[in-house]
Design a protein around this nucleic acid. Structure first.
Lengths: 196, 196
DNA sequence: GACTACCTGCCTACTAGAAGGTAGACACCC
DNA sequence: GGGTGTCTACCTTCTAGTAGGCAGGTAGTC
C-alpha cells in the first residue's frame, strides 16, 4: 500500500505481454528481468514459482474483467450497444497493437499442457466471460434490444467463439482489420429488424 | 520410398500430437524420443533442427489439407453439405479426442514468437483454408445452395472464425459438445430459406 | 535518543536439470 | 564402398529455483 510504482505489478504486466505473444512456455524469468530491469532472483522474491506468477496473473485478469463488465453494464444499458463496445475494445487493442491478443485465448489453447493450477484459472475466466455474455444477451432479448435466432446461452457461445476466432484470424493473416470484417456482420445479425 | 513404417513419419506424427496440446515451445526432442522409442540424436538425423521439423510438419499439414479439400469437392458437390462435412470432421476429432485441436490454430496464436520460417508456413495454411472456404461459399451462393448475408469472402472469414473459436471454447470448458452447439446454428444460418 | 530486532526488496553466486545440437562410431544394405 | 539409420557420449546454453548477504525502513524497548 506504500510503494507507488509497484514492482510486482510491473512483473505481472511484462509477463502478460510476453504470454500474449508466446504463451506459457514462450517466456522465462530472464525475459521478465530484462524488461523490468531487475534480477531473476528478485522476481522469485515476488512470485516464488512460475506457476504462482501466472496463476496470479490470470486471476487478476479475470477479476479486472469482472470489474470492467460490471462498470460497463451500468454505463451502457442497451445490450446491443454493450456487445458493440465489447467487440470494439478488442478491435482497438488489435488495431493499435497494444494488447493484440487475449492472454486467456493463448493459455486456453495450451490448456492440456498447462500446470493444473493455471489451467483452473483459465477455465474460470472462460466460464465467467461466457456466463456474462449469456446474461447480457438474455436481458437484451427480453428488452427487445437484440434479435436472436437461438437460445441466449447458445448465442453467447457463438458470439464468444466469433470474437476469439476473429482474434486468431487477425493474428494469423497479420491483418488487424480482419477482426472488424468478421465482427460487423455478426453484430448486424443481432440487431433487431425494426432498427436495422 | 523403401521403409514401410517410416521413422520420420512417426516423428512428425508424435510432434503433431505434442504441438496440438502445448504448442511450439511445449515439446522437446526428448519428448519425441520417448514416444517414438528412438534417441534424441537420431531425430536430428531426420530433422537437423526443430525449425526444420516443425516447418515440414506444417507444410505437410497444409498439403494434406489441400488434397482433402480437392477430394471433398469432388465427392460432395453441394456447398452446404460440404461445409457440414468440414465442420463434422472437427466435431468428430474433438469428440473422440483423436485430434482435438488444429495444429495451426495453436501455432497461429503463438505466431509472433515463432521462428519466421515456421510462421510463414502457418500463415500459408490460413491463407489456403480461408480462400478455399471463400471459393466453396461463392460457388454455393451462385448455385443457390447457400443463404448469404454478406460477401462470400466475408462469410468465409466468419465461418472460419466460428470453427476455430468453437474449437477453443470446447477445449477451454473441457466440453467437446460445445463445438456442435456453436456450429449447428452457424450452419442453419447458411441454409437456404426454401429448404429450411 | 539509542539500541535491538525484524521485515522488505534487491543483489551476487550458485545448482540441477533440460534444452537444442554435434562428433564420431557401428551396423546394415544395395 | 558409399549411403542410411541408429547409437553413445558430449557440448553449450538456457531453465526454474535456492542460499545467503546487504541496505534501508519500521517498531519496540530501555
Amino acid at each position: 500500500m506504500s510503494n507507488f510504482s509497484n514492482t510486482s505489478d510491473e512483473i505481472l504486466a511484462s509477463a502478460r505481454n510476453l504470454i500474449m505473444s508466446g504463451g506459457y512456455n514462450g517466456f522465462s524469468y530472464a525475459d521478465i528481468s530484462e524488461v523490468v530491469g531487475i534480477r531473476k532472483a528478485s522476481i522469485h522474491h515476488h512470485f516464488p514459482s512460475k506457476v504462482d506468477l501466472v496463476r496470479e496473473l490470470v486471476k487478476r485478469y479475470r477479476e479486472d474483467g469482472q470489474a470492467a463488465a460490471k462498470a460497463l453494464e451500468q454505463s451502457v444499458p442497451d445490450a446491443l450497444e454493450l456487445l458493440k463496445v465489447y467487440a470494439n475494445y478488442w478491435a482497438k487493442c488489435i488495431e493499435d497493437a497494444s494488447r493484440p491478443y487475449c492472454v486467456c485465448a493463448l493459455l486456453g489453447s495450451e490448456l492440456p499442457s498447462l500446470p493444473p493450477e493455471v489451467a483452473k484459472e483459465v477455465t474460470a475466466f472462460f466460464r465467467f466471460i461466457s456466463s456474462w455474455l449469456a446474461s447480457v444477451i438474455e436481458r437484451g432479448a427480453r428488452q427487445g434490444a437484440l434479435n436472436l435466432t437461438s437460445e441466449p446461452h447458445v448465442e453467447a457461445e457463438a458470439f464468444l467463439a466469433t470474437v476469439y476466432g476473429a482474434m486468431l484470424s487477425a493474428r494469423a493473416y497479420a491483418r488487424p482489420e480482419v477482426f472488424g470484417t468478421i465482427m460487423t456482420p455478426a453484430l448486424a445479425r443481432l440487431t433487431p429488424t425494426a432498427s436495422r
